[in-house]
Simulated assay, not measured.
Amino acid sequence: MGRPAKPTALKLLQGNPGKRKLKKDGPAPAPLAETPDAPEWLGEWAVEMWCAIAPWLTQTGIMTRTDTHNLAVFCAAYERWRLAEAEVASKGITVVDAKGVLKKNPACTVINEALRQLASFGAALGLDPASRARLMGSGGPEKPENPFIVLKGGRASK
């Protein structure tokens, strides 16, 4: 299967470093011009995260209308993670069930699931360094000019 194909619009944005022929008929949703409002159903912490991330995603041209659901799921997972962490902080890692047996706090499972969702949907949005580099291009310094290019009949840049 390999790595998922990079959208043509993203290759154009990055300058097509591989110099491969680009598909002209590929899907290319337009970036949003304005930051969308958070969905009404999101909780307080989720809206806080939306307001922190959505403007950056819009300004960088990453966010399209088709990405808003990814951001909503990411923010909802963030809220679940925060609520579960608060639960563990107040009741501990273990709890006593109805039969009096000491068991792992179910909030620990919620934390693990929410963190997996944060990683997955965050990567889709470019919210970790590796996926951000993939989405935005390397952003590193350009290669220095090869001084021997003139010997091969090329032209040195000024």
Rank of each mutant, 00 (worst) to 15 (best):
A5V: 08
T8Y: 02
A9F: 00
K11S: 10
L12K: 11
R20L: 06
R20F: 02
K21T: 06
K24V: 12
K24I: 13
D25T: 10
G26R: 12
A33R: 03
D37N: 08
P39W: 03
A46W: 02
M49V: 02
C51K: 13
P55N: 11
P55S: 12
T58P: 01
Q59R: 11
G61V: 03
I62E: 00
D67H: 02
T68W: 00
V73M: 07
F74Y: 14
A84Q: 06
A86H: 08
E87C: 00
V88A: 01
A89Q: 15
A89D: 15
V96Y: 11
K99V: 13
V101I: 14
L102V: 10
K103H: 05
K103E: 13
K104V: 06
A107N: 09
C108S: 11
N112C: 03
N112K: 10
L115W: 02
L115N: 13
R116Y: 06
R116K: 15
Q117F: 07
Q117H: 08
Q117N: 04
G122A: 06
L125V: 10
L127T: 07
D128E: 04
S131F: 00
R132A: 08
G140Y: 04
P141Q: 08
E142P: 02
F148M: 13
I149D: 02
R155M: 15
S157A: 15
